[in-house]
Write a protein that binds this DNA or RNA. Structure first.
Length: 264
DNA sequence: CGCATTTCCTGGTAGC
DNA sequence: TGCTACCAGGAAATGC
């Protein structure tokens, strides 16, 4: 590419872009929610869309987007300008030495790809055994498995019948197997539907994702559980809004808890 | 090191 | 209409 232009205030989210000039984009890869584009000079462009980021070609002759943060000037015939637009600036778009993820600790410690064969029930169980966090919060950390965000965590936990507050280390082996399968099914179905468009998300072709029509619980507190018909409830887990079915996703009785007699 | 808390950001919406 | 207040959340920074 000829150059990477930074249109946002400089900062760690947009580090190293000046080094991209003159390097060829050699591939387009992905790990979890991170896009990885190795560059010919030994660097790597790392992008994360956050919640509202969009990577798309820039229309000829149009005014720059209000929230344009980065513009890549590519060589060759138009369309040869690729933009990163990100209203809320939760996204990242930076250049690092290839494979050097010191500035991206979540990427450095990312769990297995959910659709890889390596993501087995046994591996998930072993990962969960290492944490005392609520299972949902631990899933969101990206460490037991890559790529599961707030929407898909709620959907998968509901499918597996696992309460989001279950301590990760107390998830039973059979629950881990159900959860692993549920994560894979939810992600595969969402990919087939081109993702979940709540407000902003668009595919690279500008299309909305239709998985929103298949959501069972996310954002549906107070509505009927599709499985049992009871009311879905809302919690906050790991600072994130969480919807679940109290009947289909029972919290296991705390280990070592004493039986307590209610006052007559 | 593990985990809880705080921070970053803007658009949308509720309430007055 | 215009104002304030608040909420949404992925990952990093900070604080124990």
């Amino acid at each position: 590419m000829a150059r990477a232009e930074l249109l946002a205030p400089p900062g760690p989210k947009y580090a190293g872009l000046e080094r991209a000039a003159g390097q060829r984009i050699e591939a387009v890869g992905r790990r979890g929610k991170f896009l990885l584009l190795p560059l010919s000079g030994g660097d790597e462009l790392v992008a994360h869309l956050g919640m509202t980021g969009v990577i798309a070609p820039e229309a000829e002759g149009a005014a720059p987007h209000k929230h344009l943060r980065v513009r890549l000037l590519l060589e060759g015939a138009a369309p040869n300008r690729l933009t990163f637009v990100d209203p809320r600036r939760f996204g990242r778009f930076l250049v690092v030495r290839r494979g050097d993820y010191a500035a991206l600790p979540t990427l450095a410690a990312l769990g297995p790809e959910p659709l890889d064969d390596a993501f087995t029930a046994e591996r998930l169980l072993a990962a969960l055994a290492r944490s005392r966090m609520p299972v949902k919060a631990y899933l969101l950390s990206q460490r037991p498995v890559a790529g599961v965000g707030n929407i898909y965590a709620d959907e998968a936990l509901w499918r597996a019948g696992v309460h989001p507050l279950t301590p990760a280390a107390e998830v039973r082996p059979e629950q881990a197997a159900l959860l692993r399968q549920a994560i894979r099914e939810v992600l595969e179905a969402s990919i087939a539907a081109q993702g979940t468009t709540l407000n902003d998300y668009r595919t690279v072709y500008g299309e909305q994702g239709d998985y929103v029509d298949q959501l069972a619980v996310y954002g549906k507190a107070g509505q009927a559980c599709p499985r049992c018909g009871g009311p879905l409830e809302r919690l906050v887990v790991g600072q994130r809004g969480t919807t679940y079915c109290p009947d289909c996703q029972p919290l296991p009785r705390a280990r070592g808890a004493r039986a307590r007699r209610s006052r007559p």
